[in-house]
Computed example of a mutant assay.
Amino acid sequence: MVKAARAAQVWRTYRSVSQPGSPGLGDRLKALPRMIGAVMHGQYPGMSKGKLAMMGMGVLYIVSPVDVIPEFFLLLGVADDFGVFLWLMGSLLGEGGRYVDWEREQVHRSVTVAPS
């Protein structure tokens, strides 16, 4: 059930990436380092440091040799890593898109407010 929800989240993210006017996959991926920096410096209000830490723990879980369900349980061992991967990709791409939209809005505001 949980894995189905994660897969659905990834599917929604994929659909949002492919919509006209939405930030594309490349823009979202390139924005991730800027987003991480903005979250760490408190400049981006759209994401908490706690959520960023959860994403970091997701990366560590995927690359770590220590698992909750070890790989010697074959499919179960791989499935838990894949579930974390799906959640992580959906979260990163979704947050990356929201961050790109937020950046565009900030640029638009600064151009609109800037004196002539």
Rank of each mutant, 00 (worst) to 15 (best):
K30T: 05
M55L: 15
G42V: 09
S16F: 04
Q43S: 13
P33R: 09
A4G: 08
G50L: 14
M40N: 14
D101E: 15
P23V: 02
L88P: 03
M47S: 01
A38D: 15
P65G: 01
V2L: 13
G58D: 13
Y99M: 05
F82A: 15
S110Q: 15
P45F: 08
G50V: 14
V10L: 15
I36P: 00
P65M: 04
S48H: 10
R109M: 11
M89G: 08
K3Y: 11
K3S: 11
Y61F: 14
G94R: 07
Y61A: 13
R109W: 10
S18G: 06
Q106W: 01
L92I: 09
E95N: 11
R28K: 05
M89K: 03
A4R: 15
M1K: 07
V17A: 05
P115Y: 10
G26W: 12
F73Q: 10
V2I: 13
T13C: 04
D27G: 11
Y61E: 06
E95R: 10
P45C: 07
I62Q: 00
D67G: 04
M47G: 01
R104I: 02
G77C: 02
M89E: 12
P23F: 03
R6D: 08
S91Y: 04
V113E: 06
S110Y: 10
V10F: 14
G56F: 12
R12E: 15
Q19D: 08
R98M: 10
G96D: 07
V10S: 05
V10H: 07
V2K: 11
R98V: 00
R15G: 02
T13K: 01
